[in-house]
């Protein structure tokens, strides 16, 4: 992220006009562990650092470490909730937020963090995930059933159109709940969910996709038969990288295993870790099924009364 000189100056001014040096250091240590301002600045430890110099140094280091967004989130939290029981009025905070908004971010009060503006280009890390850091994420896998047969059976233009429609249904319902498509390979793909209620949001997206696909097949399908899909949802840790192809993740491997081994056509299958977050209403949508090793998976499909 390219930080403007103006934002850099505003951050320095915000720190130097709002708090003493020891408070600045305490805040800096919230995102940079063992932060030592003397070591960074070269000031001898026995000489007190002037406020403006400390503010400049911290701002510089935060930018160097690519932690500006997280730092401003902490400043907002301190402004709203105080620090160690003390109220601190952070100067220039509205101007700082405005600068970040100009970079395509918006502060989300619900999540207490900056996320990408919905009208801006979406990135797979929401503008928040840091390269090589490990995050708890929820993933959804989609796969078009009998892809090879369909490709053989129908003209290429019909298949292209149909698959493009399925991708649109997938994309719309994933992004509607702030998920991101990480991968799409013609006949299926993977989406990721982060932030609060990520399991619920992934599952609701999955159910929505099945309902939307049902209507699509009934009313708008371009093939002579209904297109069927398999969906699976799993949650777990994942080391983030912008190069998705090179990503190694047991969580994603498990997700794919769920989809290929345990998901019948037109079903959504979720792992126990996801199911336990479903709540008193959503849990009724699923039927449990025991699998090898005494484990369970949970299945949903659209069902009609007789």
């Amino acid at each position: 992220m390219r930080i403007s000189t103006r934002l850099q100056r505003l951050l320095t001014d915000a720190l130097s006009h709002s708090m003493p040096v020891h408070t600045m250091i305490r805040i800096a240590r919230q995102i940079m562990q063992n932060y030592d301002i003397y070591e960074r600045s070269g000031f001898p430890p026995n000489i007190p650092i002037p406020t403006i110099d400390a503010a400049r140094q911290i701002t510089h280091d935060v930018i160097e470490e690519n932690l500006v967004v997280q730092f401003v989130e902490i400043l907002i939290d301190i402004y709203e909730n105080g620090l160690m029981g003390r109220n601190i009025s952070i100067r220039f905070l509205p101007q700082i937020i405005k600068e970040l908004e100009a970079l395509g971010l918006i502060y989300d009060d619900e999540y207490k963090m900056f996320i990408e503006k919905s009208d801006m280009k979406r990135t797979i890390g929401w503008g928040v995930l840091q390269e090589n850091n490990i995050y708890e994420l929820t993933f959804m896998c989609i796969d078009i059933v009998n892809n090879s047969e369909l490709v053989r059976k129908y003209p290429k233009k019909d298949i292209t159109l149909a698959y493009s429609d399925i991708r649109e249904i997938f994309k719309y319902n994933v992004e509607k709940r702030n998920g991101r498509i990480w991968e799409w390979e013609g006949d299926g793909g993977i989406a990721a969910f982060y932030f609060q209620d990520k399991n619920i949001k992934a599952v609701l997206s999955g159910i929505d996709i099945l309902l939307e696909l049902f209507l699509y097949n009934q009313l708008h399908g371009v093939l002579d038969e209904a297109i069927q899909i398999r969906l699976s949802v799993h949650t777990g840790p994942c080391q983030f990288t912008y190069n998705i192809q090179s990503m190694q993740s047991d969580t994603i491997d498990k997700l794919k295993e769920l989809e290929t081994k345990y998901t019948p056509p037109d079903h959504l299958v979720i792992s126990p870790g996801v199911y336990y977050d479903m709540g008193s209403k959503l849990e009724h949508f699923f039927l449990s099924e025991s699998i090898a090793g005494g484990n369970y998976v949970y299945r949903y499909s659209l069902q009609w009364e007789n």
């Binding site: 009724h284 949508f285 699923f286 039927l287 949903y300 499909s301 659209l302 069902q303 009609w304 009364e305 007789n306």
Partner: peptide, 14 residues
Amino acid sequence: EGIPIYKMRRPVLP
């Protein structure tokens, strides 16, 4: 009241 009516089959929970 003399007019034929139809009822929708509903989606149900398992």
